[in-house]
């Protein structure tokens, strides 16, 4: 009896001690664990498009053909694709933007995301930077960005002069899901997977708690760079901030609507350049042939000595850039 009371008193004291800690930092405040977004930090470069403030930059002569860079994710940012600035020295106006709710762009509630907004945002970015109606527009999309590029081409087949597509998981949602399943083959007893899962008892956030969820997503994404990940990445790619809510929203939207972005591709007769990497065990030639076959005309290209991050590291970039440039120059 006495012992129980003492024990309970000790616990009560411990509880009071912990609840009495001086309030210091909050995980909910942007700027603590994740950077502020363009609407919170006006010093960041931004454009206002389709009701959203997007983190964006452009390089090169404004009247040169536009090359719009579409990052992966959904929910990553364009920092890992900044090698593409090199096209600005080769006669292209290179435009980078963080997609809605991703990177350093403005955040929106989970329930606000639609497929239509994806198209409207990209069209808004093109219109923002386009200086004349005759200026050609090219898209370069990596992973999810290549799916977005295809979705846009499928919707507006006459607006785009050419596209470079680097390892889109699929161009129909069924193919995307199959690809995602393959990329998530982690050892169930391995460090990477359990690092992702064990963390979930330390940090939790509501569905629209952007700062918390983005930080968690960043820790989660570190597993994809591990040596036992099947995507064959050379290392950790640089990011500013992940967009967890936009990721969740688009994945859930995909699962609900099961989109097929290939229904009008037969109208896009321009050759597309389709890149896959030697070290991505989840992709490979067979999957590249299968996915790209939705396009009438395809130039398949294998980046040697690189994985899914083939555009981010020097070896992959050096092995891919000349072929991309020659493709773009041919259509310029």
């Amino acid at each position: 009896m006495k012992t129980t009371t003492l024990l309970l008193l000790a616990m009560l004291f411990a509880g009071l001690l912990m609840s009495g800690c001086k309030e210091e930092l909050s995980i909910h405040d942007p700027g603590n664990l994740v950077p502020k977004t363009v609407d919170q930090d006006p010093t960041l470069p931004s454009i206002f498009v389709n009701g959203a403030l997007l983190h964006a930059e452009a390089f090169g002569n404004p009247s040169d053909p536009l090359l719009i860079i579409l990052h992966g994710g959904p929910g990553l940012d364009y920092r890992y694709l900044l090698n593409c600035r090199e096209f600005a020295n080769q006669g292209f106006r290179v435009v980078f933007y963080d997609q809605r709710g991703a990177g350093l762009s403005q955040r929106f509630p989970y329930s606000s995301y639609t497929q239509q907004e994806m198209y409207d945002d990209l069209r808004g970015v093109i219109n923002h930077y386009r200086t004349s109606s005759t200026q050609k527009v090219f898209l370069l999309g990596h992973s999810w960005g290549a799916m977005l590029a295809t979705a846009y081409i499928n919707r507006f087949p006459t607006e785009i002069a050419g596209a470079i597509l680097a390892e889109p998981g699929g161009l129909t949602w069924t193919d995307v899901k199959n690809y995602i399943d393959r990329t998530r083959k982690f050892n169930p007893l391995g460090e990477s997977l359990n690092d992702v899962l064990f963390m979930e008892q330390f940090i939790t956030g509501d569905r629209d708690d952007h700062a918390v969820l983005d930080y968690r997503f960043e820790l989660w994404a570190s597993a994809s760079n591990s040596k036992d990940a099947p995507t064959g990445n050379e290392g950790r790619t640089a990011h500013w901030r992940s967009g967890a809510v936009t990721f969740n929203a688009y994945v859930d939207l995909g699962n609900k609507t099961n989109p097929d972005w290939t229904t009008n591709l037969d109208q896009f007769t321009t050759k597309v350049m389709f890149i896959y990497s030697e070290n991505n065990r989840s992709y490979g030639l067979a999957h590249a042939q299968f996915v790209s076959s939705a396009y009438p005309s395809v130039q398949l290209f294998e980046t040697l000595d690189a994985g899914h991050d083939m555009l981010s590291f020097q070896t992959g970039w050096n092995n891919t850039f000349p072929a991309m440039l020659s493709y773009l120059n041919a259509l310029k």
Partner: peptide
């Protein structure tokens, strides 16, 4: 810190998680 140099280390409160 290479990604986010000004990340703030220290004790975070209120509660960071609950399940």
């Amino acid at each position: 810190r290479a990604d986010f140099p000004t990340v703030k280390d220290g004790w975070y409160k209120p509660a960071t998680g609950g399940n």
